[in-house]
Each structure stands twice: as structure tokens, then as C-alpha cells.
Amino acid sequence: MRPISRFTAWATTLATAVGAMVVLAGSPASANGGYWSISCDSPNACLRLSLGRQGPGGPFWNMTGCGVYGINDFHDRGYANGRAFDVHYADQRWDRVEAWTSRGLDPNNRVTGVTVLC
């Protein structure tokens, strides 16, 4: 059997890392928890995907608790069903969605995170 060269091992590692980044890109992730749904459920803070796109369970990402959520996608509306939250964009701007309200978000600016206030 022929030994694997350092270059081949490096290229395999790089391809695996890039593949993982492609799979994770655009998917919300959080230690606090969350889920895709066809609606924004109370008392959650929610984001709706822009351009009519759908997640695995619907267009709404429901954030189920207080704290910081890592997000990496484009959203056009925020819904605060009981909890106010701040939406953080890639260009360092932010928007606040007050409790029991909804508001439009910048659909052309990638959301990089959300802070749910409690």
C-alpha cells in the first residue's frame, strides 16, 4: 500500500472543512435552541426567511429562549411574540423588534446574529 502524502492529507482535510461550511451556511444555530415552523409561535422571537424561501419546517425560525443566537442568512421580517430582540447584520448595523410587535428587516443584508432580551 502506498502512504498518503502530506499534500493529499491536507487537501482531504480542507475539502472536509469546506463541505461542512457549505452544509452549515444559511442554517441558524444556537445553544439556546430553536426550530423551523410555518408560524411564529408564542412566546418566541422569530425571523422569516426573505424572498419567500422555506426552511426544513417552514419559513419561520423560532428562537425558544433568551440569549444570543448565531444566524447566517437573509431575513425580511422579525416577530416578537412576547420577547423583544435585536437583529445584528453583517455590515455591523442592527434593528430592534419590540415585544408583541413585528417589523420589516433589511432583506439584502445578511443577519449574523440575534440577541433575545428577557
Rank of each mutant, 00 (worst) to 15 (best):
M1K: 11
R2Q: 13
P3D: 10
S5Q: 06
T8N: 08
A11P: 03
A11C: 03
T12R: 06
T13I: 06
T13F: 09
T13Q: 13
L14V: 08
L14W: 03
T16H: 02
T16E: 01
A17D: 06
G19V: 02
M21C: 11
V22F: 05
S27Y: 05
P28L: 04
P28I: 05
P28H: 09
A29E: 14
G33V: 12
G33C: 13
Y35I: 10
Y35N: 05
Y35K: 07
W36F: 04
W36K: 03
S37I: 04
I38W: 05
C40H: 09
D41Y: 10
S42K: 13
R48V: 11
S50D: 12
R53A: 04
Q54A: 06
P56E: 11
P56C: 06
G57V: 13
F60Y: 09
W61Q: 01
W61Y: 10
N62W: 00
T64E: 09
G67Q: 01
V68A: 15
V68L: 14
V68C: 14
D73R: 09
H75R: 12
H75T: 14
H75K: 09
D76Y: 07
D76E: 06
R77C: 14
R77I: 15
R77P: 08
N81D: 13
A84E: 14
F85C: 00
D86G: 13
D86N: 15
D86H: 13
D86S: 15
H88F: 15
H88Y: 13
Y89Q: 02
D91E: 12
Q92R: 15
R93I: 00
R93N: 08
V97L: 03
A99T: 12
A99Y: 05
W100S: 13
W100C: 10
G104C: 10
L105G: 04
D106V: 14
D106I: 14
P107T: 03
N109W: 06
N109F: 03
R110G: 12
V111T: 00
G113H: 03
V114Y: 01
V114E: 02
V116G: 06
L117I: 07
L117Y: 02
C118H: 04
